[in-house]
Design a protein around this nucleic acid. Sequence first.
DNA 1: ATCGCCCGAATTGCATGCAGTTCGGGTTGT
DNA 2: ACAACCCGAACTGCATGCAATTCGGGCGAT
Lengths: 252, 252
Amino acid sequence: MAGRADTSKTAESSDKVSVICRALRRAIIEQALEPGAKLPEDSLGERFGVSRTIARHALGQLASEGLVELRRNRIAVVATPSWQEARDAFDIRIELERLVVRQLAGKLTKPQIAELTAHVDAEDRARDGTDAVSIRLATEFHILLAHMTNSPILVRYVSEVAYRCCLTLSLYSRPHSSECAINEHRAIIAALVKGDVDKVMGLMHSHLDSVATRALVAPSPQRGRDLLDILAPYADEASGDRVVKLPKAMRR
Amino acid sequence: MAGRADTSKTAESSDKVSVICRALRRAIIEQALEPGAKLPEDSLGERFGVSRTIARHALGQLASEGLVELRRNRIAVVATPSWQEARDAFDIRIELERLVVRQLAGKLTKPQIAELTAHVDAEDRARDGTDAVSIRLATEFHILLAHMTNSPILVRYVSEVAYRCCLTLSLYSRPHSSECAINEHRAIIAALVKGDVDKVMGLMHSHLDSVATRALVAPSPQRGRDLLDILAPYADEASGDRVVKLPKAMRR
DNA sequence: ATCGCCCGAATTGCATGCAGTTCGGGTTGT
DNA sequence: ACAACCCGAACTGCATGCAATTCGGGCGAT
């Protein structure tokens, strides 16, 4: 649907690996796999009919995208980004996507415009489906946009950072009422067609910024869902040299 | 020297893999390994005293960073980015590094300032060494800067894209006379210390832009070093479905 | 009860083996 | 000479096996 979509030349070596990656990515951003969920190599291998070697490779790939965390000798888990990391990701995303629309303004072809509006229509239709699906679609709108730049590098970075943001949204935003306002997507398309570079960059900026600030509510330490999340930043530092002594029971 | 440098939490699973990655990255950006150089798994494994499994994993990692190209059933090679990809990489890099200095302006600690000036001094000293070394140092200056933002994601992206740019410089710029003007690095430090956000963002922009335009001379097809490079874009498309019939002798 | 410890089961880290593909150079036909 | 062909060597794709480590539940001490 997204026209020669994501067979980006980068990595994604064999097909089996990339199939697993895509499946897991999707499961993660649709919150079928919550942050912290365990991903044992054999289970994955069994599930997808491959050996651990392949599953392992896929996990490595996803880890390099920041979607899963890989700790030595430990079961891989879906990443649990800190609040600060989430904010950082959004900052980066804003810059990257401003670049996208800057390159795209006034240069969209007819079929591209059609594809974009079709996508937004799909978003509209999915409005009364699962939250998860509409979040995914919203994210994919941005990735679709990136694809149209014909810049594989930009596609890769935007995809990655968008998925990451998607992941953090599932962590830090409880009542996500129609995340990426669909109207803002329409406005962006319109401005792109019109070719107003400054306008569209501004639109994209405020669009993403509003999603970020609406979702990533507070830096208050009381936000995480429970003890574990509150302690996350400490446990964070500890991976190299354990500084904070944690009561054993809590060491999962 | 770069203080707890690059033990970024992302991927880089075990140590053996990341050791190989670092070694290869460095070899690539110092042009000890030219674009197109073959990287057979066994040779790598033998060289680093590990099995193919590990070497393979390292190659996967580097591929996801865009430094090596992985074609199914084929020997991995050092990536040979097209001119357009090079330009794209620089565009992204400019935005990312503007973000870096925006976050850093006026917020540098004394030891950080010392570390930066020390690095630039090192660049100065390496002036009459190999080109390769001074290019590497110049790149590392930018990565050092990124590290100081304390944003792992930003560090990762800046590092990746900087290495990529480094690689393309070795491809498309013949007479690289002191690539990243060292004085521009000093000016950036000064502006950072002074805390002038706009100034430093402008400096970084023009610094990178000048490197890019000075290096990536012309989109003229006559630039590559020989037939192979000229044909690269065609061979490129062909990986999926071979369109251009290449005389066998040339199919390396 | 709660905490700490200990041990079998589960899991990862890594090397190796086998099958399928590509590579490259020598040979043959033209 | 020149190109196409062919075949052994080289290489990758993937699964599996073994050692080392972690996991987690039960047991004893407080």
